[in-house]
């Protein structure tokens, strides 16, 4: 198992230039999630409109490259989707990370395919899923 499989270009790009990083100033749902074992922490701000569409997501966080890149990718995946669609992709991603679903399932989700390599590094799975669990909590509130 090679290091390059884990830290692919796309992942480093999202880590160094995170999409949707920052804060939402207007009224929104805000959730925080942390991984006490490695100290990773994320705060998500989510705006869902009256039709149940995820209008905007922004995040502030501290963590490793995997967790921050995954958060950045997550925001791109869920913005514009309905709550139900967003939940579906979250469930699918978490299942892949847990090993319950083939990693190839991520191929049809753009940049997410770069996170396939994480499955082979079991100790890093919790890094990759941090933002996704936070988003699930936000959708459930």
């Amino acid at each position: 198992m090679e290091f390059e499989d884990l830290y692919q270009e796309i992942i480093l790009d999202h880590y160094k230039h995170p999409r949707n990083a920052g804060e939402i100033k207007r009224e929104c749902t805000s959730v925080e999630h942390e991984n006490p074992v490695c100290g990773d922490h994320i705060k998500l701000m989510v705006v869902i409109d009256d039709d149940g569409i995820v209008q905007d997501v922004k995040f502030i966080g501290t963590g490793c490259a995997i967790s921050m890149a995954s958060a950045s990718m997550m925001t791109e995946q869920v913005i514009g989707k309905s709550k139900t669609e967003a939940m579906k992709i979250i469930r699918e991603f978490v299942e892949v990370m847990r090993g319950d679903e083939s990693p190839d399932a991520l191929d049809e989700h753009g940049d997410l395919t770069a996170l396939k390599g994480v499955v082979k590094f079991p100790v890093r799975v919790k890094c990759a899923t941090l933002a996704w669990h936070a988003m699930k909590n936000a959708l459930n509130t």
Binding site: F3, C64, A65
Partner: peptide, 21 residues
Amino acid sequence: IHPHDMAQFLDSQGIAVRAGH
């Protein structure tokens, strides 16, 4: 650089260190 990224990178260079609390 987050310690977990650092330890994983050093591993890729054949060096075993610890990262964590």
